[in-house]
Write a protein that binds this DNA or RNA. Structure first.
Lengths: 212, 212
DNA sequence: CCAACAATCTAATCATTGATTAGTTGATAA
DNA sequence: TTATCAACTAATCAATGATTAGATTGTTGG
């Protein structure tokens, strides 16, 4: 781990910003962003308490940078999930599942990525853009899959589906879903079945009537 | 506001715990729970900085108490939303909408009620119970509406619906839904339409096939 | 090659906050 | 009246976010 002999650490470091982000990322993964302290972070990296403030305006900007990296990784996962050879309907399902999988693999990071404190007081434009990107990805596939739907109807389907995806991921990370899985199915199976149901509902023809 | 003449405040107060909760509630409603400080709260109520610690073990317990009050109010709203004369299907929709309405009326409070930091390190039993109550309420109505569904199928429907409800409320409070409402519909209309769609999907007969 | 400059970092410091402790006040009951 | 005890104050500590002044180092124009 330590490339330096502990003595003779250079005054100017290679890339402190990156080192801080790496350490912060590790802390978020392990304990969440709530307890993350700028000072202990500086100490962990081996630097004075004030040093991080030359790379981040304040603690919020540090967290924001971590969140943005998370969105980048989430976006890559979304790209990997879709394929040009698959049908839009299949892509839609895989897109949803990629979000769920990311949430399960990085629960604390996702929590930070949607933390309301990040956007206050000023909602960062880049953050907002990434937060809306997830919905836009679904929107594109839904339009491709059901081009004949009216604008209004499609918006409704999209809203419902995106809510389901985000809600499922959130509830799962809060351990509000696992307590009732007596069905013997694996968590992945349950996620897949649930999301398939939601995607089918989103793709269903609007002429279907509700059974009494 | 001030029943006391500002001078001669009694050493022992009527019910400091209640006063603290009221002030804290007001702060949460206005600014969220993140910036809530025990000391400024004590100052606002007119008491020494250490006084609150005779009524709450620490800051987390104070927030927990506020959250529990929130759940009580949410539960009352849910009871008001359902009626014995209405059909289970109607009750199911109204139950979902009552959650959405509560979320819109008390966005900061709902955020606190599902704040992950509340459950760490020890997940409070009462809190967990209330968090699961929302799902249980839906479960009861769904069982009444579709008693013939298999246990597995019903669990799936419930999971999907509850995810949609919670997800919609969360995304809405994060202002991640309003940016695309060009349809001219009111927020209430959109919520109602979206949730109706989700409820219909949950109640649909499982024999329905997915159109290609 | 060197002198000015700018960026990076340290050390010191301040204000705020959560939390604890010792002692004070006052209500209640024996 | 007095013993008791919960509620409260005052004082204090440790941790943290953030700022400032100054030391150090890399860079660049002359």
């Amino acid at each position: 781990m330590a490339a330096e002999p502990a003595e003779r650490r250079p005054y100017h470091r290679e890339d402190l910003r990156r080192d801080l982000l790496l350490a912060a990322h590790a802390h978020v993964r392990a304990h969440g962003h709530h307890g993350l302290s700028v000072r202990t972070l500086a100490q962990a990296v081996g630097v004075s308490p004030g040093a991080p403030y030359h790379h981040f305006r304040d603690r919020r900007e540090l967290l924001l940078a971590i969140a943005l990296e998370g969105y980048a990784r989430l976006g890559e996962a979304a790209v990997r999930a879709t394929s040009d050879t698959a049908s839009p309907a299949e892509n839609l399902l895989e897109l949803c599942l990629s979000f769920i999988a990311f949430a399960q693999a990085n629960p604390r990071l996702l929590e930070l990525m949607y933390e309301s404190e990040l956007t206050s007081p000023a909602p960062d434009p880049a953050l907002l853009h990434h937060q809306q990107a997830g919905r836009h990805a679904l929107q594109a596939q839904l339009e491709a899959a059901r081009p004949t739907l009216s604008e209004q109807e499609r918006t409704l389907r999209l809203l419902s589906l995106w809510s389901t995806v985000y809600g499922f991921a959130s509830l799962r990370n809060k351990h509000l879903i696992d307590p009732f899985e007596p069905s013997g199915s694996s968590p992945d199976q349950i996620a897949r079945s649930t999301l398939r149901l939601a995607v089918e509902a989103a793709l269903r023809q609007p002429t279907d009537a509700l059974a009494p």
